[in-house]
């Protein structure tokens, strides 16, 4: 049996859960194994009780593989399960092959490293083994296109979670405007913007286009903008219709954060910058000379 962890928001499976289900389905179908699912509310509950209950379930049902979404919450939960039960966990897989019915054979997996700029082929002992699926690396299984996995209920009665971590408060962030991850347009700024003041041009461009500003790590390290605006491996992963990258050279750690953009326009003085190579359109020049007349031209179209 293959067990998939399905996280739900307001009773509907999350997008990442449908990606996990796609990998779990492909794995189960290829091996001729049944697919079962544990459904969990994504409610911020600390993982202790659920980890203990899931560990008990795994010990009883002995799935060959447990596959969860690559969300923060599911990753944390599966890390607890793996640690408590002494099982291996491989994070960020994109494919899994459990072979035929031959028990005892190691499972073959492919997982992401370096934010997906590198892939690792690896083997793992099924005893059983736990996995999370890399976010936005595989197509989600559309709801209703395949039989629903058989639901398995998770019984948290009488489990011994650690009981020491309590969710005590939910506090709004107090940020305004368009959320970076959901913005239709992101105007990105890098070291080439040159100063905190010069970001005023990018703020206005974003406002005119109904988007928001995102920045590279160089910019947050310089203290020009807050970290919540950072795009990249250690910041936000964005997926706008258009990403306008101004003065960003395009280190791989940045590219992994913006490769979900449908279109990229790069403005950079260096024609050989990786950001230019990753773009659909580019202006090879100084953003400080281009942006003022561009803002004026856009205002004129209104």
């Amino acid at each position: 049996m293959i067990l998939v962890i399905a996280e739900q928001d307001a009773g509907r499976p999350t997008a990442l859960s449908l990606e996990a289900r796609a990998v779990a389905r492909a794995t189960a179908t290829a091996a001729g194994l049944p697919l079962e699912a544990v459904e969990l509310d994504r409610d911020g509950a600390p993982p202790g009780d659920r980890a203990a209950a899931l560990g008990r379930l795994i010990a009883v049902r002995r799935p060959l593989a447990v596959i969860g979404p690559g969300s923060d919450s599911a990753t944390e939960l599966l890390a607890h399960v793996a640690a408590r039960a002494g099982l291996p966990l491989a994070a960020n897989i994109t494919a899994l092959d459990v072979g035929g019915s031959g028990a005892g054979r190691p499972l073959q997996l492919t997982r992401q490293r370096w934010g997906g700029t590198l892939l690792e082929d690896a083997t793992i002992e099924a005893g059983p083994a736990l996995f999370t699926v890399a976010p936005h690396a595989v197509a989600a299984e559309p709801v209703g296109t395949a039989p629903e996995p058989l639901p398995v209920s998770l019984d948290v009665d009488g489990v011994a979670g650690d009981g020491l971590v309590r969710l005590v408060e939910r506090v709004p962030m107090g940020t305004e405007g368009v959320a970076l991850e959901a913005a239709p347009v992101v105007v990105g700024g890098g070291r080439g913007v040159g100063s905190a003041e010069a970001f005023g041009m990018l703020d206005e461009l974003a406002r005119l286009l109904g988007g928001t500003v995102g920045v590279s790590r160089a910019v947050t390290s310089a203290g020009w903008r807050p970290h919540r605006e950072q795009v990249g491996q250690t910041g936000a992963r964005i997926a706008p219709d258009l990403y306008i990258a101004c003065g960003i050279s395009g280190a791989v750690q940045h590219i992994v954060g913006c490769r979900g953009a449908k279109r990229i326009l790069a403005i950079n003085t260096d024609p050989d910058a990786p950001m230019v190579a990753a773009a659909d359109w580019a202006v090879i020049g100084d953003l400080h000379a281009l942006l003022p007349p561009l803002l004026e031209a856009i205002r004129d179209t209104r």
């Binding site: 911020g44 600390p46 020491l164 971590v165 309590r166 969710l167 005590v168 408060e169 939910r170 506090v171 709004p172 962030m173 940020t175 959320a179």
Partner: peptide
């Protein structure tokens, strides 16, 4: 888009 605050 909001903070979960945990105490331990």
């Amino acid at each position: 888009g909001a903070w979960d605050v945990y105490e331990m």
